Amino acid sequence: MDTIAENLKRLLAHRGISEGKLAEMVGCSQTAISKFLTGKSTKTKYLMDIVETLGVSLDDLRSGKYLADNQADTMNGPDVASYYPVLGQVPAGDFAVIYEAAVADPETEWLPHYKKYRRAFYLRVQGDSMEPTLSENDKVLVEVGAIPEHKNIVVVRNGSNESTIKRFMVDGQDKYLVPDNGRYPVRLLTDDTSIVGVVRSVVRDL
């Protein structure tokens, strides 16, 4: 099989993109994508559209360098189960639409994880309210829609679409959002605040 096609199949698997979804993003038939990926057709006029859509160069896809770079930090650890997009802010609205927009954006950064979640994204931490547990610019993996348990770290959004990361604490019937940094106040979880998801892991650049 053509090296580019093989590497493209691996890249699609890493990002969780189906043949049908790629065809929709590129604007061609699924048959055209399938023939190229299975080796039934060694060329496709949509190849440049494909690499532009996925945000990779043709040379990197041919050499496999792009895939190697993305796997460099996980080769000796657990197997990568999936890749998730790094979002600049907490998404508001239908997560499926937001995810599709991230997939279509060639500037989107993707990070690996050893567990597969149905809906998840990475979020860059801002501020120091969760020090020393989380530091500014850490990237946390958020499982969207997960039910939080006592002491979980969660991402929440208020009625004004302002978001924050805090620790979820339960005291009797009351639920609180507690910063790990004692310089910040504890807040009662009110009806106008929604929990977006639960933080499952953190990536920290040294």
Score class of each variant (00 low, 15 high):
G88A: 04
G64V: 03
S63C: 09
A104M: 12
A81N: 04
S135M: 09
G93V: 09
L61S: 04
Y66P: 01
R118Y: 01
E109V: 15
S163G: 15
A101K: 07
P132Q: 11
P148N: 12
S135H: 06
L123R: 01
W110M: 04
L111E: 00
Q126H: 01
T74S: 09
E100T: 12
V103E: 02
Y122W: 15
S135D: 05
N137I: 11
D128W: 01
P91W: 06
A104R: 15
D79C: 13
Y117L: 12
K116H: 02
Y83A: 03
T108V: 11
N152K: 01
Y84G: 02
S163D: 15
W110V: 03
A101Y: 06
P91C: 10
Q71W: 14
A146H: 06
P85L: 10
V103D: 02
N152H: 15
A68I: 13
F121C: 09
E131Y: 15
A101I: 01
V155A: 15
Q89M: 13
G88L: 06
N137V: 14
R62I: 10
E143P: 00
I147N: 07
V144G: 08
L67K: 13
A120M: 03
G145W: 04
T164V: 12
A72H: 07
G145L: 08
V97C: 07
N158Y: 08
H150E: 06
V155G: 14
D128Q: 05
Y122H: 00
E162R: 08
I153E: 05
L123D: 05
D128M: 07
E149C: 11
V154F: 14
G64L: 05
V125E: 02
Y114E: 12
K115A: 12
N158A: 12
A96M: 11
A104W: 13
M75S: 07
L141V: 01
R157C: 01
V103H: 05
Y84V: 02
R157S: 12
G64Y: 10
K139P: 10
P148I: 05
D73R: 13
V140T: 02
Y114N: 11
K116G: 01
E109I: 15
F95P: 06
P78F: 11
G127V: 13
N161D: 11
E107Q: 13
V103M: 03
V103N: 03
E100V: 04
L141E: 03
P91I: 04
A146E: 14
Y122A: 13
A146M: 08
Y117P: 05
V142D: 09
V156G: 14
S82V: 01
G64I: 10
D128S: 03
G145S: 14
I98Y: 02
V144W: 07
V80Y: 02
A104K: 15
V144T: 00
G77V: 07
L111V: 04
V90E: 06
D128G: 00
P112W: 10
D138V: 09
D94N: 07
L134A: 11
Y83H: 00
F121L: 02
H113D: 02
Q71S: 15
A102F: 09
P78M: 09
Q71I: 13
I147K: 01
P78A: 13
